[in-house]
């Protein structure tokens, strides 16, 4: 039992913590020993990933795009991928090992995940050598291009949240109010009554 006020629970054993605590931080904390190359990652990706994400990470159908989209973040329709958007490589390794392939999570070995992560770096032009080997030794030295573009939450500095603003109650808009957008013109709302998922 615990030494806490209630004495409830029991001490977690080392093997139990190791089984569940698989998270990795941007500085590499938590990485398992292992390694894999771009060349090893390519067939693994073809066998386990390409059916949804495309042979080159371009995304099949509406499934997520994993590669490309560089220099689109300022565009009307940004393409947010590992290469164009994600700040840290640690997230790639962690998430693939944690939750992929979709429907068969935790089925990849640590070396598989290193190889797949190396292949995703290659697909995103972050490494260009098919013999590049990613390991727990060199992992933290790899930086993703968009790392510096994440900022803290500063919503409350936006003008509409300025302190002491009393909202207008009368005569707030001169002239008639015009409709500028209509949902019925787009007409993408599901119809049908009664059944969920209709």
């Amino acid at each position: 039992t615990s030494k806490g006020a209630f004495g409830l629970g029991r001490v977690a054993m080392a093997d139990e913590i190791a089984a569940w605590d698989i998270d990795i931080r941007p500085d590499g904390t938590g990485l398992p020993e292992g390694k894999g190359t771009v060349a090893e990652g390519e067939p693994l990706f073809a066998d386990n990933c390409a059916v949804c994400h495309g042979d080159f990470g371009e995304g099949a159908g509406r499934w997520p795009v994993l590669a490309g989209g560089q220099d689109t973040l300022l565009k009307d329709r940004p393409v947010k991928t590992i290469g164009s958007y994600w700040p840290y490589l640690s997230t790639v390794f962690d998430y693939v090992r944690r939750a992929m392939p979709f429907g068969d999570a935790r089925s990849l070995s640590d070396d598989d995940v290193y190889a797949l992560t190396a292949y995703l770096l290659y697909l995103n032009d972050i490494v260009d050598d098919e013999d590049f080997e990613l390991s727990n030794e060199n992992f933290a030295s790899i930086r993703l291009p968009n790392e510096d573009n994440f900022i803290p939450d500063d919503r409350l500095n936006e003008p509409h949240y300025a302190k002491g603003l009393e909202p207008c109650m009368t005569d707030c808009k001169p002239g008639p109010v015009e409709i500028t957008a209509r949902a019925q013109i787009i007409d993408v709302t599901p119809e049908g009554e009664g059944d969920e998922n209709t």
């Binding site: 840290y88 997230t91 998430y95 919503r155």
Partner: peptide, 27 residues
């Protein structure tokens, strides 16, 4: 320190018009 998991980097970060993205927009 925070862990920078997928759901707080790729997702649940808020891209702004200048290409920066807010993270940890909790409230």
């Amino acid at each position: 320190e925070p862990w920078a998991q997928r759901e707080e980097t790729s997702k649940y970060t808020d891209l702004l018009a200048d290409g920066k993205a807010r993270r940890h927009t909790f409230v």
